[in-house]
Write a protein that binds this DNA or RNA. Structure first.
Length: 565
RNA sequence: GGCCCCGUAGCUCAGCUGGAUAGAGCAACUGCCUUCUAAGCAGUAGGUCGUACGUUCGAAUCGUACCGGGGUCGCCA
């Protein structure tokens, strides 16, 4: 149990006594008030709003209620002092022994920590890039984000399948095959100069085409997509990413019972046979006004109804995507998570509503849209155009900066925000660069252990911990920080926000560097003091826990943790 | 024009999902190296949380409108 829960429980017990069971009608008292670390140190070490929340029900002023609660709470052996402040906050000051005890508990359960999470079966679909070219930096963001979310969910105890949906059917694949054939027939022609939307430009497919020996269109498409997927998987592997399931759109569509789904869509009045207005854009020159099966997406905030089946009988991408997501439901997942690029934003409502309406089971379906990534080289924006085939690939960026910097950057921002990614600054070996700063903290810990082992002839198994030696404010703050580690992971998992982990690690690293720096100002505050074994052992014990937390945190988000730098 | 996302210090970003006097880092200024790794540490300064209403004991956080930036509006994926 963490210390927030510990105080929540004792506070709600006190409240029950005060109210003489009067407020038992509240399902769970603990859920309706908060215990938190206040923003300012003079507001105590922990603070609760319990008196403000329940004052109305008990017909008392918040401050009077706070007074009553405090009278009981002060009896708790760990509470040093209580302050009632502002509109009725109860601010707790705790004895150092409380934090020492927390640290001991933390260490003893560290290796096999039980997050006490009800396990869910979760499918995280991410990347799912078309097998028509190389991955670019935008894919890298979705890839790292989806991967980090998966790892964190797994860490707290969920069952997670990482899934890649291969769009190996449809117009894009036809265009791909056409491009391959073009290259074979025109070995010296440059598609960039032709500037024809019917083909994919770029040298990548020229190379691929030279290894293709088939003539039949279907055979070509199979072989090309296989080759490209191999490259994509290799790129992902360089970032430590691999998926559990690869689902083929082609197979998915061919296996499904289309007539049954059509009937269900019409029976539920989700779709109808009708006409669409001509689209504003001229992207599809062959558009004709014809009757087709349309989804009533305008019922769900879309500006028009969208096609499910083309007049020629082929399924639209939307239709196969519905089939695919219903298939996920059939496979028994409780939660579906998708990571998409922001350019799919208009598609979110359509697909989630279609899936939820057609699903036999009540599921949780959430789509994350990742913001853009702007690449800079030394503060100069690198212009990119996928259309012309001029863009930096994931591989280019990986070769330039490596996996750690790339992963940390992609994780450390909120998914929706735009990221400015500068090749120069993510490679700097200084405080400017968070991933370096965190790794450096770990290396510094390791360096301390080395000196410790050389100077003190102690058995490393000996759990030398004299808790009352950790008296500095910085030490108590570090104890609070490390013992909050599992909480951060839980919240990160609950809100699917990996950036909470990187922020936490950065904070912890900063606090550790500050702690280390104390010895520069006052030699008594050095971690290793040659003639004081007791203090040294205590501090090394704390440093060891810090290093364990950094290592585990980095391991979860798959960032290397070098022993020395 | 419709829909989606973003707007917090000069810059890059946090802000524990409604709490108290809004936090870090960079850049600026001031100290600290015969070192437990200066690849670092300490200190100073920096804000009308885009704007305006509203919801309530309380709003950066929730709602509405507007302003500014980005994305998107196919039978493509």
């Amino acid at each position: 149990m963490n210390y927030f829960d510990y105080f929540k429980i004792s506070l709600s017990e006190i409240l029950k006594e005060i109210s003489e069971e009067k407020i038992n009608f509240i399902e769970k008292i603990e859920d309706s008030f908060t215990v938190e670390v206040p923003s300012k140190k003079n507001f105590g070490e922990l603070s609760t709003n319990i008196a403000m929340i329940f004052s109305k029900q008990l017909k008392m002023s918040p401050r009077d209620l706070a007074e009553l609660i405090s009278k009981e709470l002060i009896k708790n052996k760990y509470v040093k002092d209580i302050d009632i402040a502002g509109p009725g906050f109860i601010n707790l000051f705790l004895k150092k022994e409380f934090w020492h005890q927390q640290l001991v508990n933390f260490v003893s359960s560290f290796d096999n920590y039980n997050y006490n999470v009800k396990p869910k079966k979760i499918c995280v679909e991410y990347v799912s890039a078309n097998p028509t070219g190389m991955l670019h930096i935008g894919h890298a963001r979705g890839a790292v984000l989806g991967d980090a979310i998966s790892s964190i969910l797994q860490e707290v105890g969920h069952h997670v399948d990482k899934e890649y949906y291969i769009n190996d059917a449809g117009e894009q694949i036809k265009k791909l095959v056409k491009t391959i054939i073009y290259h074979k027939e025109n070995p010296n022609s440059d598609l960039k100069k032709i500037n024809n939307d019917d083909y994919y430009p770029g040298n990548y497919l020229v190379g691929i085409s030279s290894t293709i020996n088939k003539v039949d269109n279907i055979e070509i498409s199979n072989e090309v997509t296989e080759l490209i997927m191999k490259d994509i998987k290799n790129d992902l592997k360089s970032l430590g990413i691999s998926h559990d399931n690869y689902i083929s759109e082609k197979i998915m569509a061919s296996k499904s019972n289309i007539n049954q789904l059509k009937k269900k869509l019409i029976d539920k009045d989700l779709a109808y046979l009708g006409f669409q207005d001509e689209p504003d854009s001229q992207k599809n020159k062959s558009w004709k006004k014809e009757k087709k099966l349309l989804f009533r997406s305008s019922n769900y905030g879309d500006d028009k109804d969208r096609a499910l089946i083309k007049p020629n009988g082929e399924l639209t991408y939307f239709m196969t995507d519905i089939i695919y997501h219903l298939n996920k439901v059939e496979r028994g997942y409780d939660i579906l998570l998708n990571v998409w690029g922001a350019d799919h934003s208009g598609y979110v409502k359509r697909l989630t509503n279609a899936t939820l309406q057609l699903s036999e089971k009540k599921i949780n379906f959430k789509i994350f849209l990742t913001g853009l990534v702007n690449l800079y080289n030394n503060k100069k924006l690198l212009k990119m155009s996928k259309r012309s085939g001029n863009y930096l690939t994931l591989k280019d960026v990986y070769n330039e900066v490596g996996s750690d910097a790339l992963r940390f950057m992609m994780i450390s921002r909120d998914a929706r925000s735009t990221i400015d990614f500068d090749f120069q600054s993510v490679q700097e070996r200084n405080k400017d660069n968070p991933v370096f700063y965190v790794q450096y903290a770990y290396a510094r810990c390791k360096s301390l252990f080395k000196i410790f082992k050389e100077n003190f002839n102690l058995n490393s198994d000996k759990n030398a911990f004299y808790s009352n030696n950790l008296k500095l404010n910085e030490e108590i703050d570090l104890i609070k920080k490390v013992t909050n580690f599992h909480n951060v992971l839980l919240q990160s998992a609950e809100f699917y926000e990996p950036h909470r982990v990187t922020s936490y690690l950065y904070d912890l690293a900063r606090m550790f560097h500050n702690y280390w720096g104390l010895g520069k100002i006052n030699p008594n505050n050095k971690i290793i003091i040659d003639d004081n074994e007791e203090i040294t052992c205590s501090r090394i014990f704390l440093v060891n826990i810090i290093s364990l937390v950094i290592k585990k945190g980095l391991r979860i988000i798959k960032i290397n943790c070098p022993e020395n730098m």
